[in-house]
Nucleic acid binder design. Sequence first.
DNA 1: GTTATGACTATGG
DNA 2: GCCATAGCCATAA
Length: 114
Amino acid sequence: MPEGDARVDYVEAVLAVIDDIPPARVMTYGLIADVLGAGGPRQVAAVLSREGGSVAWWRVIRADGTLPESLRAEARVHYLEEGTPLRADGRVDLRAAVWIPAASLSDPSAGIGP
DNA sequence: GTTATGACTATGG
DNA sequence: GCCATAGCCATAA
């Protein structure tokens, strides 16, 4: 049985995933879309542009570990506040900060060391 | 139904 | 490692 407003349900799902991201951790747009198994990275971004004021949008970054110039400065404050792993360039260190719900059972940071 | 747009991603040089 | 181009998905006009 179809639903009249599936797009609203999608928004709620995206917000729920972002809400599940713990502090000092981040997820990429494509990763969230992959976890949801629907839409794409642009749809996740579109949701944040609409409801971004109600969630920790700074925990959602691009695959390169960067954000648009407009948000980069504000996000940097939150990263320092939560202790998110950052590189010398000011970008987020995906290898250390990326969060994967399905991998929450193990320690992703255990085998990344140099 | 077609065109344009967007807080993106992957690939090639 | 960085820059440029092509591709992708859904919404809005």
